[in-house]
């Protein structure tokens, strides 16, 4: 579905992606884990063409989106939904309008049909009755959930989640994972989830990839990764301070 080949991305002198290769299989949930600031968000932005690599290719189905112009890129983006790490809600619109916006702009649904869908989407993320609030009146976790409702609503074929549950309490976190899992079973989209929820993420991911030093260090099924013998991977998963990953350099 999405195939990243030899991606290199530098910001100034900082090399964030360093010849990264990754294949995201169709209809599966792929989780990307890795230390903070290693380039997970940057990686997601490459998948949807928000950032262009210095070199390398990004294939979405058969299109290399690094070579596409605006119109073609938009055609490819029709397949996507994305949840940003900071939710990126439209701050001059209410929660209701935020969720309704893509429906109003991209579908021919009537006002009533949109109303039903929006209420249902808000209900699904546990935000019934907050429709009239504005993004700056929400807690961080609530913003995330509005972003999630917005991303799921158009039933896209590929959804990129940048930390869907960071900042949420354990119960909502579980509920959100359940929601992702359920909608996934129902619609069969391809999902890429960047997450720090270890070990919960292993329950919903079909495949896990660990990003480290600009490359995919190890990739495999959730079980493989959990039992990895690679010192970096096992240190990261156990969250131990001793090992090759040095927080204080």
């Amino acid at each position: 579905m999405i195939n990243l080949v030899n991606l290199v991305k530098t910001f100034g002198t900082q090399k964030v992606l360093n010849g990264l290769n990754l294949e995201v299989p169709v209809g599966k949930i792929t989780a990307i884990i890795g230390p903070s600031g290693e380039g997970k968000s940057v990686l997601l932005k490459h998948m949807i063409g928000l950032m262009r690599p210095d070199s390398g290719q990004v294939f979405v189905e058969d299109d290399d989106i690094t070579t596409l112009g605006r119109t073609d890129l938009n055609r490819v983006r029709e397949k996507f939904g994305m949840l940003f790490q900071n939710a990126a809600l439209f701050d001059s619109m209410s929660v209701y309008e935020n969720v309704a916006f893509p429906l109003q702009e991209k579908t021919k649904l009537s006002r009533e049909e949109i109303h039903v869908k929006v209420l249902e989407a808000l209900e699904n993320v546990g935000l019934r009755g907050t429709g009239s609030k504005f993004p700056d009146e929400l807690s961080g976790g609530m913003k995330k959930r509005v972003g999630l409702a917005r991303a799921l609503l158009l039933n896209p074929r590929i959804i990129l989640f940048d930390e869907p549950t960071t900042g949420l309490d354990p119960i909502i976190c579980r509920a959100i994972h359940q929601l992702i899992k359920d909608t996934h079973t129902k619609y069969g989209f391809t999902a890429v989830i960047v997450s720090h929820e270890i070990p919960e993420i292993f329950d919903i991911a079909d495949q896990v990839a660990m990003l480290y030093r600009g490359e995919i260090l190890e990739m495999g099924s959730a079980v493989d990764i959990q039992h990895s013998t690679h010192p970096v991977v096992s240190q990261f998963i156990s969250g131990s301070l001793d090992g090759p990953i040095q927080f204080v350099k």
Partner: peptide
């Protein structure tokens, strides 16, 4: 809107 990624959000929805 630009610095809070709202512009990017529009782009990801394939909206200009």
């Amino acid at each position: 809107k630009k610095i809070t990624e709202q512009v990017d959000a529009l782009e990801t929805m394939a909206l200009e």
